[in-house]
Design a protein around this nucleic acid. Structure first.
Lengths: 343, 343
DNA sequence: CGAATAAGTTTGATCGATCAAATCCATGAT
DNA sequence: ATCATGGATTTGATCGATCAAACTTATTCG
């Protein structure tokens, strides 16, 4: 046989019509058990595989999710996105879905890609990461009724509960609270928060967790807390310099919690072994140098994203405009305590 | 308009037939310039986008490459694969190609996926990474005439020049030679090679580079070189213990070159600041701690892979069984020297 | 007993594009 | 003036599957 077998060939071999073969594959329930067995045997014998493109043309579904691969050069925290992608691909695979990658230079370009891929029936839905304030991408997707789910809350005030916006996120506030409480329990009092400038939803959320725990667990006043709070761009060097500045200013502290492992490592490189530091993201770097960190359960995030968009187990899109289920998931991260290896 | 426009709609709007529209898209040369302009205007006006699945059904091409996402190896060096994936996706995108991800539990499972995706016209070709000795996957692909290219040489003795096996790889021997020569130039003499047990092509290749340079640049005998050569499994802890063992055995050394950044970091955590260490892969960890390392130019690897399989600029498969071009690319890595940040 | 109902299967049409062959038309050679 | 030539465009068929409706056959009920 030269050509690949089609439903017609299988039907002939099993003595049934093409549609029956199709039914065996897509709606086994309607076919008599005996017939089904015969067809299944023929499928196995001929090594038949459905032609994905033909099916997609007809059904206008692709069983494929699109996700953008960030340019993401600055290594260290890039691994979060990569690990999420791993988890997502594995779980999608288990549901018979596949992930189509693409890149884009900017949000407008990304929207153009959305359009192309969705209209061409390349993908059924999109998974977005690193959403930001008033994200034009989610607006476009909602407006054009293209299904999607984001890893990351829509930080705009109103969007937050927008029923059309499905999202999964990690509760950074809880993460920082855990980290801070852990240090408090170990006897630390003056705990520094080393984070990013205000404005990023994610960063503000994490800072909030530290403040919550400090307010509840110490008697430091707001002004004092302000002094223990550092805001710099992400990066190892930035983290180090920030802590250096703190020391130079003569501000005492006995532990540090950070918004990222990059910052955490920067701090680690400067302070003595007696000052505990906790990072965020639990990257390979943290593991390698023995930096305690907050682990984002990305498997759960991926599972949540798929669940929201495809239902609990299916590989078909859920009618998300009807469904009454909750339209988001907030996942609690976990503190990983490590024994320091450097410094 | 409710439905998306098709070639027919565009044709009607421009006063031509559907095939002419198709030609404007796929063979602009055969259409008269004036007509073409009219059709292009109609395309823009209606916002027409070709339906990818329909095109694929007819042409049996998908303009998509499949690549397996590894099951998340031990963090630190996993980033090489991820960076390669980034580079590949970006360059594929520039050619109008897309990358389809999948996962597999083992080589047999992966082969099953090859079959499914290829027969379903989901992908035109595959990109394989981390090939190994007598890899059943490449054998299967060759046997079934499925186009593919590997990142990594086929380490089997005969496969190496197999004209049906397209491959790109990084010249690890050159990398280690560069690293070793750099240290020799800086005055080191007794340079340790910290690598993996024999048997992996990649590892043996790298060790060869160190030995080349040591033979040429020192008067140490073979026996002495054997003593300076460590073979352990990859990992930070393993690297550290190996070096500790060396010290315990009373063997003197004044520099270390490694087969990976994991091993390099392990070594770094143990030796004094006066013993230079050079890792391999130039991972974010290396950058963060200031470990010198060997950078694999993954953009070049990705470009080479696409070039081999799709031709210099095209987005169509090259007739690789005919082509007389070279069927592989060996890329030279680059030493990145850094100022130590820890220890 | 005949008609309504359900279960199982088949047939015709369709998804949107491209291939292959046919048609049309202007030009130049005979 | 006739016919071959080649460029530009159109028509018919097809890729492989699924949908929607039609058809068979067996079963049930008034």
């Amino acid at each position: 046989m030269d050509k690949l077998p089609t439903v017609l060939d299988v039907g002939r071999a099993a003595g049934v019509s093409r549609q029956t073969v199709s039914n065996v594959l897509n709606a086994p329930g309607v076919v008599k058990a005996e017939t089904r067995a015969r067809v299944e045997a023929a499928i196995a014998e001929l090594g038949y595989r459905p032609h994905a493109s033909a099916r997609r043309l007809r059904t206008r579904k692709s069983a494929t999710l699109g996700i953008r691969l960030d340019p993401m050069t600055n290594g260290i925290s890039g691994s979060v996105h990569d690990r999420f992608l791993h988890a997502l691909t594995e779980q999608a695979d288990a549901r018979g879905l596949r992930m189509l990658l693409f890149t884009a230079t900017d949000p407008q370009d990304e929207i153009r890609q959305f359009q192309r891929m969705h209209e061409g029936a390349d993908v059924d839905a999109f998974v977005l990461t690193s959403t930001f304030f008033d994200d034009p991408r989610t607006e476009w997707l909602i407006q054009h009724r293209v299904p999607f789910v984001t890893f990351g809350r829509p930080w705009g005030i109103d969007d937050m509960k927008d029923p059309l916006h499905l999202w999964v996120d990690v509760d950074g506030r809880s993460g920082l609270r855990q980290a801070t409480e852990h240090l408090l329990a170990e006897g630390a009092r003056r705990i520094v928060y080393l984070g990013w400038p205000s404005g990023s939803g994610t960063g503000d959320d994490r800072r909030g967790g530290w403040r919550d725990a400090m307010r509840a667990g110490t008697d430091l006043g707001e002004a004092e807390l302000d002094r223990l709070q550092l805001a710099v761009e992400d990066g190892v060097a930035q983290g180090r310099e920030a802590v250096r500045g703190l020391e130079a200013a003569g501000i005492r502290f006995d532990a540090i919690v950070c918004a990222s492992d990059s910052l955490g490592l920067g701090a680690l490189l400067l302070v003595g072994a007696d000052v505990p530091v906790i990072g965020y993201d639990n990257t390979p770097v943290a593991e390698a140098v023995g930096l305690s960190s907050i682990e984002q359960p990305l498997e759960d995030v991926a599972a949540g994203a798929l669940e929201l968009i495809m239902g609990r187990t299916g590989s078909e899109l859920v009618d998300w405009e009807q469904s009454d289920d909750s339209r988001h998931r907030l996942i609690t991260p976990r503190l990983v305590v490590r024994q320091r290896r450097i410094s």
